[in-house]
Computed example of a mutant assay.
Amino acid sequence: MTRTTLLERALIEEATKKSGLIWVQGGAGGPRPVWHAWLDGAAVLVGDGPGEQPLPGLADGGEASVTVRSKDKGGRLLTWRAEVAELAPGSEAWEAAAAELKGKRLNAPDSDRLTGRWAAECRVVRLAPTGDLDPLPDSSLAEPPAATPATTRDAVPAALPRLLFGLGRRKARGEG
């Protein structure tokens, strides 16, 4: 891990703001994709409630690793360390985060009472950059696909184009 420069802090903010999806890993388990909003120098997330994204391993006072993807290419751009803080429902920080997140929440079935449901059933978490950047890995970290009995479909039978488009009939009538 390296301490960030002013330019790198600006990159963390701009890249995270523009990316609609970040990969967060806190505690045990692998990184998880989460949607977020950027507010006052930190990423804010909502989850762990019915109909919302899971936030496993993100404990109040803990640390997390945040990987940001490039908006135009979708590839890994940078990975930064964050301090995790759970915001208390009803607090000024929670209200500001919930208002920002509500604008980013797509397809909410209960948009009129969304923040009330979040206060009662979900967690709002703030990920503030610590100033540490992880170096990018040398390899892609891609995993092989899981084994499955599913297969691709068979090749198209040779006679199918003639049946569908009547190619055989034209030749038989002398049109081809």
Score class of each variant (00 low, 15 high):
141 L>F: 11
88 A>S: 15
95 E>P: 05
98 A>P: 06
73 K>Y: 02
93 A>S: 12
84 V>M: 15
166 G>A: 08
164 L>H: 03
69 R>G: 13
173 R>T: 15
71 K>W: 05
99 A>G: 02
162 R>G: 13
59 A>T: 08
26 G>V: 12
74 G>H: 06
54 P>F: 08
35 W>M: 01
14 E>W: 08
80 W>P: 00
163 L>Q: 06
95 E>F: 08
60 D>M: 09
25 Q>G: 12
141 L>K: 09
34 V>M: 10
111 S>Y: 04
61 G>R: 02
26 G>L: 11
77 L>C: 12
65 S>N: 05
17 K>P: 10
78 L>Y: 07
130 T>D: 06
11 L>F: 12
80 W>N: 02
34 V>A: 10
80 W>F: 12
99 A>T: 07
142 A>T: 09
150 A>H: 04
30 G>K: 01
3 R>T: 15
151 T>Q: 02
173 R>I: 12
105 R>G: 08
1 M>Y: 07
50 P>Y: 03
46 V>Q: 00
1 M>A: 11
124 V>W: 02
58 L>I: 11
80 W>E: 00
31 P>I: 08
20 G>H: 05
43 A>L: 11
156 V>Y: 05
131 G>T: 03
135 P>K: 10
99 A>M: 00
110 D>W: 11
52 E>A: 13
37 A>M: 06
139 S>G: 05
103 G>M: 01
142 A>K: 04
20 G>F: 07
126 R>W: 14
79 T>R: 13
160 L>C: 03
102 K>S: 12
164 L>R: 00
129 P>M: 01
93 A>F: 10
128 A>C: 06
92 E>V: 14
148 T>Q: 04
114 L>A: 06
